[in-house]
Design a protein around this nucleic acid. Sequence first.
DNA 1: TTCTTCACG
DNA 2: GACGTACGTGAAGAAT
Length: 941
Amino acid sequence: MERFGKGHHLHLIDGSGFIFRAYHALPPLTRKSDGLPIGAVAGFCNMVYKMVEDAKGADAPTHVAVVFDHSARTFRNALYPAYKAQRPEPPEDLRPQFPLIREATRAFNLACVELEGYEADDIIATYACQAAEAGGHVTIISSDKDLMQLVRPGIEMFDIMKNRRIGRDEVFEKFGVYPEHVIEVQALAGDSVDNIPGAPGIGIKTAAQLIADYGDLDTLLARASEVKQPKRRETLINFADQIRVSRDLVTLRCDTPVEEPLETLEVREPDPETLLGFLDRMEFRTLTARVAAKLGVAAPVAEAATAPGAGAAPRAEASQGPARPEFPPLDPARHEVIRDAAALEAWVARIADRDTVAIGVKMDGPDEMLADLVGISLATGPGERAYLPLGHMSGPADLLSGETRVPGQMPLDDALALLRPVLEDPAILKIGHDMKADTKILLRHGVAVAPIEDTMLLSYALFAGLHGHGLDLLAEKYLGHAVIPRKSLMGGRGPKTFGEVVIEAAAPFAAEEAEVAWRLRATLRPRLPFAKVTRVYETLERPLVPVLAEMEAHGIRVDRGQLSRLSGDFAQRMAGLEDEIHRLAGGRFNIGSPKQLGEVLFDQMSLPGGKRGKTGAYGTGADILEELAAQGHDLPARVLDWRQISKLKSTYTDSLQAAINPRTGRVHTSYLIAGANTGRLASTDPNLQNIPVRTEEGRRIREAFVAEKGQQLLSLDYSQIELRILAHIADIPALKEAFREGLDIHAMTASEMFGVPIEGMPSHIRRQAKAINFGVIYGISAFGLANNLRIPRDVAKKFIDTYFERFPGIREYMDATVAFAKANGHVETLFGRRIHTPEINAKGPHAGFAQRAAINAPIQGTAADIIRRAMIRVPAAIAGLPAKMLLTVHDELLFEVEAGAVEETAAAVRAVMEAATMPVLALDVPLVVEAGSGANWAAAH
DNA sequence: TTCTTCACG
DNA sequence: GACGTACGTGAAGAAT
């Protein structure tokens, strides 16, 4: 190989810089067949092609290297920790393009250079210096101003997007100094983008002037006291050290330990098969054809996309959604069990190389706040999966020693120490199914997993209303793969928890889960843009995970003594009621049994109104018992009392005591992000979204939810949010006006409908109007309203007709929404969330349900979107305040705040909540938030 | 496991 | 003309 020197011409391409420029300059292009984002890849390939084509003749490069940043952290972080620290993460749809661009580079048979701990700029500097010293000529393909310090005889830059050469004069234009002083100007001026501090108040203009006046930076700093302007003089003296650090930061290193000598960068002809194969895979049709023509080879057949095994997907389908990416079938036997540090280190290296990893954390129980970590599964691609057992226990060896740890497992702390760097690396994406659970348990072990991708939430954004979002179901549906059933490992007479499962059985199960998640992500992620739910997933689903994880982990304090006293109180009253009920019935029976109660009421006592349901049992719901009680029957009235107390005792005062976490002394609910089809959250284990509030008895339970000593509970809730959204969506002038003027909306409705003045409105009239307003949100029907208000159905019908007359627009909204659902199979919220309505075209009684659900979903769903947006913004808004967000109840957020900071927190959160639709959407009505605080939850309302 | 009832927004 | 209904949830206890 000829030694690099005179007559040679080296092109150094700033690959990383180009990626970002191409990404932002070009429209977001995606691959036709599966929606994979490839805009930056396309821009890169066209650029390389153009470069190779244009630079023929005397000026043609003899050597080329494409240089990339290896990772976010470099030696400069050791010099100055804040360096580039506030850089935003690369956009989600750019991330997958990094490896593709490296692949493109290799496909063009160009040297692809990167080095851990160094920036692309340092590698470029090193090669440029070496080449220039050897007597060659260098062109740096970049427009990055940080590289301009390298310009000198033999080294110039070229901005390929603007087709402009950058030489000595162009550098002077930019910095006001020639290249040899660029570093000094940068050191003084600093750079907010890279977090280079520089000298406060001195920009490029002033810096250039100072350097021109004093010759160079060291002289300037030495003679700073001579500077005339007092402010500037002070700055230069006080910030001299900071300026010197800045100079170190901006100075590019020419001694980077590059591995490839210059000679190996020699231009080589690309291998036609490799290059055309790559371009074709990216589906760049024009470029593929051009390159094929150039190389004198036939272009690959375009039909290659319809490969065998794809189920012969017709072309027409390709425009509706991406095809399933093709991977070899999941081989059930292929997994590794990681048992020592060396094996785990190899996995960590592979994960760092791949940029993405699917993980699955296994626990020895269902409660992340209580369970111990049993193992972690990992997958980096098809056939690349492993299980890391950490806490598997053998059964009780004997009654005295209890359980023992199975040998052949790494110590937990050692394993987490090795995994932490990749789990916390902002450049490595962690894929998982229901990552909130994994996040929580890892957080308990001090590992803050980020960033994350969640296949459950991908499914939720794409398919809400169509089917469930469990991993098993999705694997079956979208991968055609039946996973190992959990039941085959646990349950029955077998192991009770995952920790008791033998590693040999646990490993294939756990590793499979990780690989399934990895494959699901590859299949589902590209569908987002086709379903137009990328923004839903990115702004309403994914960012909520860490917010909820923290709330759940924090929990809320409940007063066990208060609950215990209530339980005792309720038990006594139930006993009294039982005696009385049995006396009235003339015999003992199980009051809690609807079947026995029905028989007592309607067979023994022959009370009227006995209606049998579809299972043949009498209905004994509260409405029926109330009807009987109103007729003067005592027994049903006492049963109603008994039921209320019984409900409160079993569901609340007893269960909540059991829900107190012994480790934290608090109650930790768990929110289902993908539980409700409309976008609402659901709360489970325990459900803290249905704590009683409507009755006096119930409020005593709410009083048991308390703040810690010295703190207060602060509650903020949206006032009438769903009616406000209805007013906006259905565009009802009268409603919008009323909300803008802050009127009592139900009184206003009553006034409009019945012609009664708002002043001195009788409460029963207002109550009826309120029921109608709610009914509208629910997809009103005469039957439902009649039932709710206990009025004849024809009267209810009249009410509804009047309502539609008074508020034209409601009817249109309802009809249009149902029509949209019928045509599209889904409805949408104002933020683009899709709720599927598969039953909308059904015949029979199902149709009514589906239609009302379709009418309600955009309203309920938009409200859910709004509070999600608020919750995601809350942490930043209250950062620094002694306040924690504890709970969310559909339109309410509950906080625990140090007593002195209640007002400030309330103001900050209210601002976030009231502006939560912005900047995406400006509602026609104001959002109003009401706040309250107190020592307990009842008092905060 | 399914049904009924009832707590919440 | 009759279906049988208000929308969205989760938990407990009885019935199957």
